[in-house]
Write a protein that binds this DNA or RNA. Sequence first.
DNA 1: TACATATGATCAT
DNA 2: TGATCCTATGTAA
Length: 266
Amino acid sequence: MPEGHTIHRAARLQAAALGSGPIAVASPQGRFSEGARLLDGSTLEGIEAVGKHLFYHWDRRPILHIHLGLFGRFSTFAGEAAPEPSPNARLTMAGDATIHLSGPTICELLDPLQVEQVKERLGPDPLDRDADSDAFVDALSRRSIPIGAALLDQSVVAGIGNVYRAELLFLEGIHPDRPAHSTSESERRRLWARAVELMQVGEGLGRIVTMDPRDVGAGSHRAIPKRARLYVYKRSFEPCRRCGTEITSWDVGGRRIWACVACQPS
DNA sequence: TACATATGATCAT
DNA sequence: TGATCCTATGTAA
C-alpha cells in the first residue's frame, strides 16, 4: 500500500532492522537471481527514499532500486525466525532481520549515474527536508491539466498517490477538475504545506490519516476508528464529514477521485 | 472457484 | 485512451 510515506518509513525501519552485518540476498521467485547473487553477503551502507523509489546503497556493489508499484509489498521479520518466503518472493534480504519483497514493479541494480537519471525525473518530495517547494509551485503554474491529475504526476511532486491527492484537494477546498494553473499561488503553497504535514503524519503512523482530530471527536490518531481516517477517499454517496453533502466520484487523470463539490467548488 | 479491486507507471495507438 | 505488468485480499457465487 505504497504512497511516499510508506516508502520513507520502509527505508528508515529496514535500515535499522537489517543492521550493519553482511546481508544474505536471494530471489526465491528467480526473476532477480542474478542481482541477488551480486549483492549476497554485502553490507548495507544506507537506504534512501525519494518519492516512491527506494535505493539501497551497498559496500562496493551496484545500487538496488525498488519501486513497489500498485501491488508490491514488504514483509519484515525481526526477533522471530522468518517463515519460508512465498514462491512469489522476488527478493529476500536477511541480516539482523529478514525482509521479503513480492510484487514490485521495479527491482533492479543501477549504477550511480542511472540513479541520478531516475531522480532527475522526479519533482520535489514533501518528505524531503531540503525539498524545493518553489519547483512544485512553479510546475503547477505551468500546467493546464486538472490539478487532480497534476498531483499524480511524479515529475511535479514525488510521493503523492491517489489517496493523498483526493484528501489534499478536499482539505484545501480545491475542485479536482480545476486546471492546475488556475490555482492561486497561495493555494499552491497551502497544498505543499498540507502535503508535508499529512505525509509526515503518515510516515510516523504507517498509514494515511488525514482527518483533523477536531472533526473526529478527540483522542490520538491511534484511537481514530478505521472508517474515520479520511474525508473523501472511497466515500461515494456518504455524507461529507464537514457539510453533509453527498461525496461524489469520477475519473481524473485516469484514476478515480472523490470529492465534496460543496466544499470544493469549481 | 471466480471475480473484482487496489495507495502505480509505462508503453502503444 | 487502452492494454499491460505485477500480487494479495475480500466478496460473490
